[in-house]
């Protein structure tokens, strides 16, 4: 079967890698047409990936399992890259700055590459264990990953800010095309606000689910605690704007630290710590 979801996902991996390369070329060599091409390729990628996700959903029904493709590490990585691209495309469309693509699309292509090429990741469709059989599965995963993806983009913007800030004198060349620090600061803030709402909803839906499944909405399980740590970090970013001397560079740093915390919540907890979310490691 060539026209399967896994085939489409492999294709997506290469398309996103290509798109990231095109965005980089567009930034470094400042060729307008390459930027346009990068957007076209990215849009093509998201269409193929969306079809892939839909197909995988159908395939799980054909296997008799019948669940949304959001149930293990492989599927979550695919979904993470999907949301990252969606969030990025919305920002590109709103801000009309393709340079951001060079800092945002690599997250999506890395996620797909990890899902596709890592030998430790099971890419087969598996049946749902009893604990995952809940209507809250979709709500919980979707909200969490909307948060994660926004924070990935915010991290990319934070890196841009620090690069731009470092070479603040240069108004020409590859630094010249990076948007102004003031604009980046506002974008970082907006993206964090957006991500924070989804992270909060992700934590709440997780709590409701845990209350349904285990009878405790909060049990200080490492995954829960790390999501709270991430929440604290971004809450810091949102309040730091009101403290003199914290806006700008420090918030850019927080956007990077925050994303590191997201990554640890996502992977670190599964691989390094033990807890209730162990099915995420398979």
């Amino acid at each position: 079967m060539t026209f399967s979801s896994s085939y489409l996902f492999s294709l997506t991996t290469f398309i996103y890698m290509g798109a990231a390369a095109l965005y980089l070329i567009h930034w470094i060599f400042r060729v307008k047409k390459v930027g346009f091409l990068a957007t076209v390729v990215t849009v093509g990628g998201i269409v193929i990936q969306t079809v892939g996700i839909g197909l995988r959903w159908i395939e799980s029904y054909q296997l008799g399992y019948g669940h949304a493709p959001l149930s293990n590490l492989y599927e979550s990585l695919v979904f993470f890259s999907w949301v990252t691209i969606v969030v990025y495309l919305i920002i590109e469309w709103q801000v009309k700055q393709r340079v951001i693509g060079a800092f945002a699309t690599p997250f999506a292509s890395l996620s797909m590459a990890y899902a596709s090429f890592s030998p430790n990741i099971e890419d087969k469709i598996q049946p749902l264990i009893p604990a995952l059989k809940s209507n809250w599965l979709i709500a919980h995963v979707v909200t969490c990953f909307l948060g994660y993806a926004s924070f990935a983009v915010a991290c990319g913007l934070g890196i841009m800010y620090l690069i731009k800030n470092r070479f603040s004198g240069a108004s020409e060349g590859i630094m010249g095309v990076i948007p102004d620090c003031k604009i980046l600061d506002e974008l970082i803030h907006q993206t964090i606000v957006f991500g924070f709402l989804w992270l909060t909803l992700g934590i709440i839906t997780g709590a409701i689910w845990a209350n349904d499944a285990w009878g405790t909405y909060w049990s200080w399980d490492p995954k829960e605690t790390w999501s709270l740590i991430t929440w604290f970090v971004y809450a810091t970013a949102l309040h730091a704007r009101f403290v003199r001397g914290w806006a700008g560079r420090r918030i850019a740093y927080i956007s990077i630290i925050g994303f590191a915390s997201v990554m640890f919540t996502y992977f670190g907890v599964n691989f390094l710590l033990s807890g209730l979310h162990s099915y995420g490691a398979q």
Binding site: T225, W226, I229, F232, H239, V243
Partner: peptide
Amino acid sequence: VRLAVFLLIILAITSIVGTVIPQ
């Protein structure tokens, strides 16, 4: 707000302890 920012950072850092040491 400075205290709020400080407390949020302290909470973020200290919360790590209980995820590293088994509870």
